[in-house]
Design a protein around this nucleic acid. Structure first.
Length: 461
RNA sequence: GUGGGAGUAGCUCAGCUGGUUAGAGCACUGGAUUGUGGUUCCAGGGGUCGUGGGUUCAAAUCCCAUCUUCCACCCCA
């Protein structure tokens, strides 16, 4: 009985064609990260649950993939406890590892653990998959890749500014029009403090984050469900819907929050960031979006989010400053700021807009046809010569029908085919066929490399 | 966790007011063309119709259950 194979939901296989496109994205991001002097690290796919739990809020804990202990995983559980079916309690007893949920918390753990070996301010980048036990849907997967850059051990707003430059540069290189939204958690804190609703900070941020998605009326409904008076609700909406230039927005917040410490600090930070931003030209649209909140608990200062202008797919990059991420691991007073690119969503956007450049998708450039044992041997030195010349080349491994071999070249979009059979061997020539034009050139084997290079140069012009 | 759709060939799907042997396109294999691809034409292989039960003379088709999957909400990249 044959079974139909499949993969877990929310996960994906990547074909060679898809990998070429994905690598194009990863390489672009990596190049820009390194250009700004961020260094690579990697951390394990699984972390101890004690590292992961409690860092992403209640919802986040629920979405952690937990790994069953090996061996007799029930040995710590009594029959009585088992029958109570207290899932969180049991999960705690039978599982002590989980798959990483993001790259930021493992990074914080990494910094604390290697604090004696690393140089502060520490700038690292990390491109690895993360896992969330979410219910998958369009643009949301259970396994997806994040590309993070963080700097830890510096409070300077230069870091924020450079991260904005990185976001701009990456999407500029990918030829993707985007809007970079910036806000500051301290401004939000100041606003809520001045209105006396500070204790509902988390709930309110989650709601206003949805503002452009569900609209003003729905947001107000959710506010009142939270027990916020209509008066305060209106005041909040006035702030979040305020449309004007950055300076005017800041003045408005300033007058509103001048009595609050958080507000004053937030204004100061944001003004500082904008003095940098105003000195430079950007391809992306950059705006101070007061309704940007971001769900993750640990952000305390500037926050960022990038959305594509051409495709409505949610945020494709986000990040922010966190003041005390390493504190829970015992290393106090280290402030960090970072961003994270969602490679899978960027892929979806480029796919929809046809944004992948044809030329980047390199593969084998030359195929030697296989005419049989003698001809095969005769081909091998020339095959090596091409590879030494840095031209990706292959030989069809079996002496099957020429038609089939040609079809192979066609399907793999290999631009050159070398026909080296009995006739060519006798004449000490090879027949080089261009699969685009159909032209065939009978040339000495020594000329293959030149012919290909010259033609490629010509075609690029 | 809540709500809605869908499971038929390797893939995308048609068939579904029950009725002989379950179809198409793509893909695959062979041939027209034994040294020439992308176009065309011909032929062929491949399915216990997700699984279990029920109704019926008769079920891919109707009913129930179950599993899987997709979409939306929550939340998020």
């Amino acid at each position: 009985m044959k079974q139909k194979p499949s993969i877990p939901k929310g996960t994906r296989d990547f074909t060679p064609g898809e990998m070429l496109k994905r690598n194009y994205i990863f390489n672009t991001i990596r190049t820009v990260f390194e250009n700004y002097a961020y260094l690579p690290i990697e951390t394990p796919a699984m972390e101890k649950l004690s590292t992961l739990m409690g860092k992403y809020g209640e919802e986040g804990d629920r979405l952690l993939f937990k790994i069953l202990n090996s061996g007799d995983f029930l040995k710590k559980v009594s029959d009585e406890e088992l029958t109570k079916r207290d899932i969180p309690f049991l999960a705690n007893k039978i599982s002590e590892k989980g798959l990483r949920y993001d790259l930021t918390v493992p990074f914080a753990r990494f910094v604390v653990q290697h604090q004696n070996d690393i140089v502060f301010p520490f700038k690292r980048y990390q491109i690895q998959p993360v896992w969330r036990a979410d219910r998958p849907q369009k643009g949301r997967y259970r396994e997806f890749f994040q590309c993070d850059a963080d700097v830890i051990g510096s409070k300077s707003m230069i870091n924020e500014f450079e991260l904005v430059q990185i976001m701009d540069e990456v999407f500029n290189r990918l030829n993707m029009p985007v809007t970079i939204k910036i806000n500051n958690r301290k401004l939000l804190q100041g606003i809520m403090e001045s209105m006396g609703i500070k204790e509902k900070f988390m709930e309110i941020t989650v709601i206003i984050d949805k503002l452009d998605k569900i609209g003003e009326t729905k947001v107000k409904e959710e506010f009142s469900a939270l027990g916020i008076s209509d008066e305060i609700s209106d005041k909040l909406m006035n702030v979040f819907l305020y449309k004007d230039n950055t300076k005017s927005k800041l003045d408005m917040i300033k007058s509103l929050t001048e009595n609050t410490q958080a507000g004053t600090k937030g204004i100061e930070e944001t003004e500082k960031l904008w003095t940098y931003i105003d000195h430079f030209e950007f391809d992306a649209d950059i705006e101070l979006d007061l309704s940007l909140a971001r769900g993750l608990d640990y952000y305390t200062g500037a926050i960022f989010e990038v959305v594509a202008q051409d495709v409505d797919i949610g945020s494709i990059c986000g990040g922010g400053r966190y003041d005390d991420l390493t504190g829970i691991f015992g290393l106090e007073d280290l402030s960090g700021v970072g961003i994270s690119f969602g490679a899978d969503r960027i892929y979806d956007v480029l796919e929809k807009t046809g944004g992948f450049p044809e030329t980047q998708m390199q593969q084998s450039e030359v195929l030697f046809l296989n005419f049989g044992a003698q001809e095969e041997i005769h081909c091998l030195p020339w095959l090596s010569a091409l590879r030494k010349a840095d031209i990706n080349a292959e030989i069809y491994p079996d002496p099957v029908k020429i038609k089939k071999q040609m079809k192979y070249a066609d399907k793999k979009k290999i631009p050159w085919v070398i026909i080296l059979g009995k006739d060519e061997m006798k004449a000490d020539k090879v027949k080089l066929k261009n699969m685009h034009s159909g032209e065939e050139h009978l040339i000495p084997p020594n000329d293959i490399v030149n012919k290909i290079r010259v033609t490629n140069q010509y075609e690029q012009k």
